[in-house]
Design a protein around this nucleic acid. Sequence first.
DNA 1: ATGTGGCCAGCGAGGCCAATT
DNA 2: AATTGGCCTCGCTGGCCACAT
Lengths: 276, 276
Amino acid sequence: MHQDYRLLPLDDLELLEKQTLRMIVQALQQYSGEAKRIFDNAPPKGTEVIVLAEDLTQYALEVAEIYPIDRRFAGFIDYKRSRWFPTSAGLIPQVLLADAKASKENNRDTLQASQLPMDADFNVTVDGVTTAHHLDAGVPQHMEIPSAGGVLHAVTTSIFVHMYYRDVSKIQEPYRDLKDIYVLAVPHGRLKDKYNPNASTGFWGKGKHSDARQEDPRIRVYFDRLRQACPWRLQQLTYAGSTDGFTQAIWRDVDASGFETNEPFLYLPRPIQGEA
Amino acid sequence: MHQDYRLLPLDDLELLEKQTLRMIVQALQQYSGEAKRIFDNAPPKGTEVIVLAEDLTQYALEVAEIYPIDRRFAGFIDYKRSRWFPTSAGLIPQVLLADAKASKENNRDTLQASQLPMDADFNVTVDGVTTAHHLDAGVPQHMEIPSAGGVLHAVTTSIFVHMYYRDVSKIQEPYRDLKDIYVLAVPHGRLKDKYNPNASTGFWGKGKHSDARQEDPRIRVYFDRLRQACPWRLQQLTYAGSTDGFTQAIWRDVDASGFETNEPFLYLPRPIQGEA
DNA sequence: ATGTGGCCAGCGAGGCCAATT
DNA sequence: AATTGGCCTCGCTGGCCACAT
């Protein structure tokens, strides 16, 4: 049984990320009812969707935590927890990094360099000319935690919770319509060779920063390409067709032949509170 | 035994706020060691002190929570919890609203209108001319929570955690020096008559918004006047003279004669983790 | 020197549009 | 019409400075 993620076979590292995401999807599904009520009905007040996405992500995930490691980090990541993660390969110290996004787009996410878990290579085409670009990872592969008997290397796992919505009204409830919650597991830095061996292969794209204004570089994750590379890394909880206020409980995976599957799953809905 | 804060005598409402603050001061004291290590050593990256103050406030307070009420609100308040608060007058449903501030000033705090718990009247002097100003409270006196047998009215309690610091270095640790943690309990709206009967009496002052640019009005709390009005509502945890990395454990109160007192208190230091 | 007033800076986080394909 | 590139908006938080006392 391993305790150090650096000794894990890459397949086991992927499984750790998959298990992490599966748990987060369960937590979001169970909270999706209240999440939509709050998101849709919070009064407009400037940049409220940002803080709504952050708060709702926290409320969804905090009740699904596991064996905590008593170590905290401060910084720009919305939700971060150190914990012992149980896997078949061993009990792995992990730092979960989850970032909440609110967006009217549903095909990509923009990451700050500090949210990038792997060195990224990608092509950018402007005026028919394609050039290779590169951005170094800003997320360390692990955090070091002093411990009895040595230093623990807690593997970082990067999750993005993407609230896809549109505006509905400026004067009355509902002000917004939360349509889907996308959940992305962006591969750990050790998995670069598999997911992004070169600029032509991968799910990265030019960020939304302005070069002209010399803004800090950002980078984008494209949903469709992430899904093609690994279906379960792009989950979609949709409210479409919902009659009970909750999202559809479906987990995206692959079967033994490598085909994409959709597996319904059971869940315990957290009650939708606050209905007057 | 009351369950509705609206029926509490004002003195009991003050005691509820005092008990709330006392617990928060204890929590911050116990966490002050790690808080300073993290605050001082986090690498500069733009507006990092804001998020540091927020994260540290959360880490300090979340371990000191009490009997939670299963109700969540989303919004711009940094730390918010619904809970049952035990007082001698009854078990009172409460929504704690704590906002974190980072500042190089140590004599006042700026509040958004949405952080203002009472209607405020105050004088503004410009060019020798004094005029009365007014700003309506943006914090509701309570939040309504549907419950078995009726609607609970959870009293809001507004706390501000003010990290007073200065910059030290741009290139090496420590980057900052966290000097004091001020903790303010701003009186509930029902206490306006006592604390702010008119524009000439109170601790409010002109906010730091720009009228010229038509920014949303803000308002300031002046520490000295809050302390004069009610000494325990302005607490100061200072690192000055500290040899162990923790703040001085002193609670400010008043004796029976109304004189200000300083009471040392015992605490269980949370270990300062992460020292390499 | 301090205590107030208040303009502005910087920077997140996305909206949104334009140029391609 | 859908995809990708990227400029700019908007608002949140305080730094910081200028008077006034």
